[in-house]
Design a protein around this nucleic acid. Structure first.
Length: 199
DNA sequence: AGTGCGATTGACT
DNA sequence: GTCAATCGCACTA
């Protein structure tokens, strides 16, 4: 497609994790599958930092969280609750074990493919949550550790629009639960969760 | 080797 | 609003 932008380079990504979580609101996420190209605009993220008890990297490197320690811009995929895959992007300084969870997308292209992958037609139900998003984009473990600044199957494109950013606690965690590390686009109907969390 | 627990979702009352 | 499904991983021993 002619309008398809080049990958965001690593230098284009903020080196600070919280800044990156904010920066990614409005950025586009591209996923190339054999069936076609899927594109969404990121409308909700969460930051997971060093020294953060809610982070998978809180107790240091493990077999699961390895991609969190890569240079910013690598995919970290894991299975939550035995049922839902989560897509994160490594962030912060290389070796520090930080990441940004991508929680929701506004579908832009490849919508029919997303609907087929989700088994649902309602646009608001395609990617308004981290597990839904991964299913809509056919994210799988093959993408774990994928360099999104160079990858051919998953990458980021420049932000579109000038989103008004809302901030809240992160959703679904019990440790360090009150830190303001969730970011979303105000008023966007594709943001996950009850409206009380995203006024 | 055994066990408890989630960065969730979808179905149901 | 409530609640079960489901399983890989990290922790304990």
């Amino acid at each position: 497609m002619a309008w398809e932008p080049a990958h965001l380079t690593r230098q284009a990504l903020p080196s600070d994790t919280v800044e990156m979580a904010r920066f990614l609101i409005g950025a586009r996420l591209f996923r190339q599958t054999p069936a076609g190209l899927l594109v969404g605009r990121i409308v909700e993220t969460e930051a997971y930092l060093t020294g953060d008890a809610a982070s998978h990297a809180f107790r240091g490197p493990t077999p699961r969280n390895g991609p969190m320690y890569l240079a910013r811009g690598h995919a970290y995929v894991y299975l939550a609750y035995g049922t839902s895959l989560m897509l994160n992007i490594s962030s912060g300084a290389e070796g520090h074990g930080e990441a940004v969870l991508i929680r929701a997308l506004e579908p832009l292209a490849g919508i029919a493919l997303m609907q087929a992958a989700r088994g649902r037609g309602n646009l608001r139900d395609l990617a308004s949550g981290p597990g839904k998003l991964a299913q809509a984009l056919s994210v799988d473990f093959a993408l774990n550790g994928h360099d999104m600044c160079r990858g051919e199957s998953l990458w980021l494109g420049p932000p579109v629009g000038t989103p008004q950013i809302g901030i809240s606690k992160r959703i679904g965690i019990t440790k360090d639960a009150d830190r303001p590390l969730r970011f979303y686009e105000r008023g966007n109907p594709h943001v996950s969760g009850p409206r009380s969390l995203s006024p």
